[in-house]
Simulated assay, not measured.
Amino acid sequence: MGKLNTFMIQLQNQNAIFYPGQPVHGQVFVDLNADMKMREIRLRFQGNANVHWTESHETGTGDDRRTETVTYSAHEQYFDITAALYGKTLGHGEKLPSGQHNFPFQFMLPPTLPSSFEHQYGQVRYLLKATIDKPWKFDHHTKLPFTVVSLLDLNAIPEAPRPMQNQVAKTLCCLCCESGPITGVLRVDKSGYVPGEAIYLQGEIQNLSNTECSVEVKLNLNILFHATSKTRSIPQEVTKLVLDRSNPGETQSLSGKRIVIPPVAPSFLAGCTIIDIRYHLELHVNPSSVSKRLVVPVDIIIGSIPLRSSFHSIMQPQPAIAPHDVNINVVGQGPGAFPSAPELPPPSYAECVFGKTDMHDEDDNEHTKGQMSYAPAYPYYNFS
């Protein structure tokens, strides 16, 4: 058994959810069963965005043809600060005595930061990393990611309260036979929503073809990753609603159907210039006899603060939604209040619907401990 029993970072806010401009309070906890010689204990505060992917390209012709792997990447740094907590530079000795030790810290987040976001091709990530720097031996590391939620107020977006509609028609052809058209109409009474809110669907499918069709309504996310020399667009399904099949000659109404928005990052990822996210509601009508489907898209905006017209429908947060009780103070307001909507009941917070991400990176080794699986948490409202 080694000298080090426990080495961990503890935050005062155990949910590790913060807003830009807030202080991050915590402590680094070290438990030793014997004196340990070290240069210092330091803590690194990092906030950055990264984009990275590879593609295979064929080059040359004939016998000189070969496959080349090209890497595309970009980096954006918001802060990177390292502070010594113990060591000779602070007037301490070269050894940390056995026993339990707490090293408190406080860090003020910058006032403008993008929301946390995780994807295999890019991330906006905020991280604390503590290190025990040992002379002539392997250093010990421990990591703790935390979530930053940047507020996107739908009331400040002119398009958010506006209704949206789209209509698409398709005529099916099978060999020399042509059937009547399939027409899809999709309407929503506004463009702006928040996680936990239901999108109430309107519209219809008119099937004048001779083919039965399956029908789905999907909430999709389109992510743009901007590398230094190329942009890559990645679609991702957030959630979907499977509806009754559309029979030949029938008109099917969408009225009364709804999709509840799960916990996801706010639209646009404001403050980040290398990752952009947009949401689309899509009606999919899939004919059973041919491969081409009819898609009716409608753009929507997902924010952090709902439209004021929705305030009356929001109840107090339910503890079951979030893994822990959260008490977040927004600068300039009381506990849990939003700067632009202090009368709004505070939301709960729930982990992103896409699940956890592996936090290991190329600098980690067997001496790196801490939270290695992480999902950002986003505001989630309890609508009546």
Rank of each mutant, 00 (worst) to 15 (best):
G355S: 10
V149R: 01
L96A: 01
D299I: 05
A341K: 03
P297S: 08
C177K: 13
I234F: 13
D358A: 09
V331R: 08
N382T: 14
M8D: 11
M36T: 03
L294S: 02
G93N: 07
A198V: 15
S253M: 14
R278K: 15
W136C: 13
G192I: 02
G192P: 02
A16T: 05
F7Y: 03
Q100C: 12
N365Y: 11
S255E: 14
E94S: 14
M164K: 11
L96S: 00
F338Y: 10
A34M: 09
Q106C: 12
E40I: 07
I182L: 05
V298W: 00
S310N: 11
H141F: 15
T82W: 07
K190F: 03
I277P: 00
N207T: 07
D153V: 04
E362T: 14
D153R: 03
C176G: 14
V296A: 01
Q316P: 09
G93H: 09
T59A: 08
P145R: 03
Y193M: 05
P379H: 02
H226L: 10
V353Q: 05
C173Y: 13
T6H: 12
V28Y: 01
T71D: 14
L269M: 07
S214I: 05
D361H: 08
I41T: 04
G271E: 04
H324V: 12
L43C: 04
Q333S: 13
E55P: 10
Q10W: 08
D363T: 13
E94I: 08
L224G: 03
P111A: 11
F383A: 06
K190N: 06
K292F: 09
L269T: 02
I205F: 03
D35E: 12
I277E: 00
E159P: 06
G47F: 00
M359Q: 10
Q318Y: 13
T61F: 05
I157M: 09
Y78Q: 01
K95Y: 11
E343W: 10
N166I: 07
G99Q: 07
A320D: 14
L172I: 13
Y126Q: 01
V298I: 11
V148Q: 00
V217M: 03
S116M: 02
Y200N: 07
T131F: 06
I132H: 01
Q236S: 15
K37I: 14
L172S: 02
L43D: 00
N13D: 13
L4D: 05
Q27G: 08
V70C: 09
L32V: 05
Q123K: 10
F338Q: 04
S191I: 04
S233H: 13
V168A: 03
G249L: 10
G26A: 08
